[in-house]
């Protein structure tokens, strides 16, 4: 077996750490993350509170664990949502070709003019800021990305001989897309999804930091940072931990994505 690239291994370990923490927080945290204890506020790290407590005496470590769950859930939902729609559009564009393909790809181009932040701003102005608004904004920017990757990969498959054979055998475009095209373009889509996961975690943190995502008391790394920013002179350590968590998660998914691309696309490895 070929040796696995180091970025894949490091990425996998970091992702396992984040995903494991998120999963563990469902059944266990050292303390109840919502438990207030004003008298014990700003406690230093100790055996009782591993990373100390915040301005309301809540256990920081437990909050970070639950926030990991929030982060992973938002990324999972938004990337899956945007991915499913984007892949479907890309498959349709590739299968139909012609005007349909042109129209779909032009619409995708317009999607690129809207960064998640602008979309979240518009939706928040209209509906008020909330986590679902953030999820929809992040999902939306994923649609054109997946549509492009899918169409580009699918267009290659449509010129293969086995697809010609399937068409000659009377298979329709839908069944060819499902049975022949999709399974053969799974690798680039999975790679893209992993990278989009990293971007989604970063976007969720930024939106929550700006008050457009998770609302109190739901813990989120981004929101913890915006609260910590007002306490920088009192408790600078609170502004460190959530950031380290974000970097760990983003780094993990982007390294994993790079590594997966290296092993699934041999062309790139040779170029290095």
């Amino acid at each position: 077996m070929r040796k696995l690239p180091p970025n894949l291994l490091i990425g996998a370990v970091l992702v396992a750490l984040v995903a494991g923490t998120a999963a563990l927080s469902l059944v266990w945290t050292p303390h109840d993350h919502t438990l207030l204890n004003i008298r014990g506020k700003f406690a230093a790290p100790s055996e009782l509170h591993w990373l100390g407590t915040d301005q309301l005496g809540r256990d920081v470590f437990s909050q970070l664990m639950v926030a990991a769950r929030n982060s992973v859930a938002v990324a999972l939902i938004s990337v899956c949502l945007g991915g499913v729609i984007g892949v479907a559009l890309g498959l349709v564009a590739s299968a139909m070709g012609g005007v349909v393909e042109d129209v779909i790809m032009r619409i995708a181009d317009i999607g690129f003019a809207f960064p998640a932040l602008l979309l979240a701003i518009m939706l928040a102005a209209v509906f008020g800021p909330s986590l679902p608004v953030a999820i929809i904004a992040i999902a939306f920017i994923n649609i054109p990305v997946f549509a492009r990757v899918t169409r580009a990969s699918a267009n290659q498959i449509w010129t293969r001989e086995y697809v010609y054979a399937a068409r000659a055998a009377g298979m329709g475009r839908v069944s060819i897309s499902r049975d022949h095209v999709l399974p053969n373009i799974a690798a680039p889509i999975i790679v893209q999804a992993t990278i989009e996961f990293a971007i989604a975690i970063l976007a969720e943190a930024a939106l929550s930091y700006l008050g457009l995502g998770a609302q109190p008391p739901a813990p989120s790394w981004g929101r913890m940072l915006s609260e910590a920013q007002t306490l920088m002179y009192l408790a600078p350590q609170l502004a460190i931990y959530p950031g380290v968590c974000i970097v760990t998660a983003v780094l993990g998914f982007s390294l994993l994505g790079d590594g997966l691309r290296d092993i699934t696309d041999p062309r790139l490895v040779r170029q290095r």
Partner: peptide
């Protein structure tokens, strides 16, 4: 690689700190 993973707003907070 690290810079890509660091959110700008956290970097700002660290610089301010």
């Amino acid at each position: 690689q690290l810079g890509i993973a660091v959110p700008a707003f956290w970097l700002s907070i660290l610089l301010v700190l």
